[in-house]
Structure formats: structure tokens, C-alpha cells
């Protein structure tokens, strides 16, 4: 594709042993996981156990991705991208192929998970995503190329993991890697400056994508109106409309704002569900039910007092009877 001729991305057959030129670590290729514009990712076996290994052709773009992975590994307390192990070169038939090694995330694609487990997971997983994004933003980074393909759901309890962090951009710079459907520039609803609201637009579009799995193209003009109609037209999306609208129009400055409102919305929904099912919650209903037991206790106390009073009365009579 580029003007300078480069080595084609060669398929590395299963069972191949890759040995790093600089660090001398060896990896045994188990299977191909996927390939993108910059290289191919393989599952490999090593002394560290199972790892994901990305082989590319252009050492500058591979290095650029590694720069981001290293930065993300430095964020304390939260697991953002896949954990980074090392970068090296592999020499094969006299040609050098740069590669890097990272944690293998054994997860399920976001939408596959939601289809299997139920639509109610969208809101919950978005809450997780927004929490992680707010950490990323605080560290001065913007995800950039946020889309379902870059998100995996792993383990139990199900946790959202980020797969491809190649588009991650320092705050204030321009986003270079993006996917049109999730890019606010494409919809004419903003620029491509890396700022939190850029990612939050993409989050909203991920939710829209859940409602419209086949996606759709932009209209000739007035995409705002067009997108609002799309939200109205889907039963799944309608309930999220106030939040989606604000995110699409760039009204949230921070991921935490959007997260709070989504949280409130999901909670409100749960209360509604409870009311409909007529199950006693924590509110007035509960208080009314406990009150009669208090009354009973009080009447029991009165009974005791009366009984004691009676006994005392008869005992007095008995004593008086003895005297006479």
C-alpha cells in the first residue's frame, strides 16, 4: 500500500519457534488470533505461559504501539490494556520482523457476550467501561479508536478488557486511528482532538451499534436529528436516550459525569421493576410492616404489669387472710 516497498506480512505456521534477537526469549506459535493493518496477532506458548504475540513489518508502528502499552502498564491500581511483556526482533530468512509480547486475554467479543447473556448487560458493561475511561483520562490519555471489536469480556464476574490500544493518544493531540461509525468527525459532530468527550461519543455509538448490529451510514446532512431518530426507533436504545443524546452532542466533559447519570438511570430502572413486581423494598411499606410488632410488644408489657399487679393483690389478700 505504501510507496516504500515493505516485506509482506507473512503467515507464521503453527509450531514455529520465534526467538528474539535482543532478549533471546523463545515463543512457540499455537494459533493465529487475528490480523490488522499493522500486523498479525498469535497465541504463543512461552516460559511465562500463554501469551499474545504481535508480529509486524514496520518497526516504527510496532514501537509506537509498544509506547502506549508501556504507558498503560504504568497506571496503578487499574488494569487498562493488556499487560506488556517485551519487544524484540525476529530474523527469518534474512528479514527482520519486529514483534512484541503481551498478556493473552481469553475473552469473548462484547456483542457475542451480550447476545448470549442478555441486553441488561449493556448498561452494566458501559458503567465498567466509563470507570476505566475516567482513569485513562485522568492519566492524560484518550482511547481514540473505541469500538466493540476492541473490547472483550473476560472471566467471572464478567469484566470488560481492552484489546487494541494502538489508537490511544495523548490528551490535546489529534486522534489518528479511528473507525468511521464511532468517530464524531465522520458524523460532523465535532473535531478529532483527543479529549474525554471524543471517547464518550464513541461509547454512545457502541450502544447504538448494539441496537443496530449492522450499523448504518451517515445522512447527507443533519446527523444529529438522524441519530436521535435512530435512538427513538429502537426499543433497546430509547431508555438510554437522555444519556446518549448528551454524549453524542459532547455535553459531558468527563467520563465520571456520564457514568453517574447512567448509574442513576439504571438504578431508577431497578426501582421501577421492584414496584411493578410489588415486592417490599426498603421504603415506607417496610416501615409499616414492622410497626404492629412494636404495638404487640407494648401490650405484652402491659399484660405483664397487670399480672404482677394481680399476683401482688392476691398475695396481699392471702397475707391479710393469715392475720385474721
Amino acid at each position: 500500500m505504501t510507496g516504500t516497498s515493505k516485506n509482506p506480512v507473512a503467515d507464521v505456521p503453527r509450531g514455529t519457534t520465534i526467538r528474539g534477537k535482543w532478549n533471546k526469549q523463545t515463543y512457540q506459535i499455537m494459533k493465529k488470533l487475528g490480523s490488522g493493518a499493522l500486523g498479525t496477532v498469535y497465541l504463543a506458548d512461552s516460559v511465562k505461559g500463554r501469551v499474545a504475540l504481535k508480529v509486524g513489518t514496520d518497526s516504527m508502528s510496532i514501537t509506537s504501539e509498544v509506547n502506549v502499552l508501556k504507558q498503560l502498564s504504568m497506571v496503578q491500581g487499574t488494569v487498562l490494556g493488556p499487560f506488556f511483556y517485551e519487544i524484540d526482533d525476529w530474523e527469518r530468512n534474512g528479514k527482520k520482523f519486529p514483534f512484541y509480547v503481551m498478556e493473552y486475554i481469553d475473552g469473548e467479543p462484547l456483542f457475542t457476550f451480550i447476545n448470549r447473556r442478555g441486553k441488561e448487560w449493556i448498561g452494566i458493561l458501559m458503567l465498567q467501561l466509563l470507570r476505566d475511561l475516567s482513569v485513562l483520562h485522568r492519566e492524560g490519555w484518550v482511547f481514540g479508536d473505541l469500538k466493540p471489536d476492541n473490547l472483550l469480556v473476560e472471566g467471572s464476574p464478567p469484566t470488560m478488557r481492552w484489546l487494541d490500544v494502538g489508537g490511544t493518544t495523548p490528551m490535546g493531540r489529534s486522534v489518528k486511528e479511528f473507525t468511521e461509525f464511532f468517530d464524531r468527525g465522520y458524523w460532523g459532530l465535532g473535531n478529532r482532538v483527543a479529549e474525554p468527550s471524543y471517547d464518550l461519543f464513541s461509547v454512545a455509538m457502541i450502544v447504538l451499534n448494539a441496537g443496530y448490529p449492522k450499523r448504518f451510514d451517515r445522512p447527507k446532512k443533519d446527523s444529529e436529528h438522524y441519530l436521535m431518530n435512530k435512538i427513538e426507533g429502537s426499543q433497546l436504545l430509547r431508555e438510554y436516550k437522555p444519556i446518549l443524546r448528551k454524549a453524542l452532542l459532547g455535553k459531558y466533559n468527563y467520563a465520571s459525569e456520564m457514568r453517574q447519570e447512567l448509574f442513576a438511570l439504571l438504578q431508577g430502572e431497578q426501582i421501577n421493576v421492584r414496584k411493578n413486581k410489588n415486592v417490599a423494598g426498603h421504603s415506607r411499606v417496610a416501615a409499616r410492616q414492622t410497626r404492629p410488632t412494636v404495638k404487640k410488644k407494648r401490650s405484652g408489657w402491659i399484660e405483664t404489669v397487670l399480672l404482677v399487679a394481680f399476683l401482688l393483690f392476691f398475695y396481699t389478700l392471702y397475707l391479710v387472710g393469715h392475720i385474721f
Binding site: 535482543w22 518497526s59 516504527m60 514501537t63 509506537s64 509498544v66 509506547n67 508501556k70 519487544i87 524484540d88 526482533d89 527482520k96 519486529p98 493531540r173 489529534s174
Partner: peptide, 22 residues
């Protein structure tokens, strides 16, 4: 070539390229 630099050093070169591109 850039490939003759150890991978860890290449990171700094890429940062300079990114910075200039921006």
C-alpha cells in the same frame, strides 16, 4: 537503520516522530 537500535531505544525515536507530526 532504525532497526539497528535496540527496541527500547526506538521508542524515543517514535516519540520524536509523533511529536513532529503533531
Amino acid at each position: 537503520e532504525i532497526e539497528d537500535l535496540p527496541p527500547d531505544k526506538r521508542g524515543q525515536v517514535v516519540e520524536v516522530v509523533d511529536e513532529l507530526g503533531e
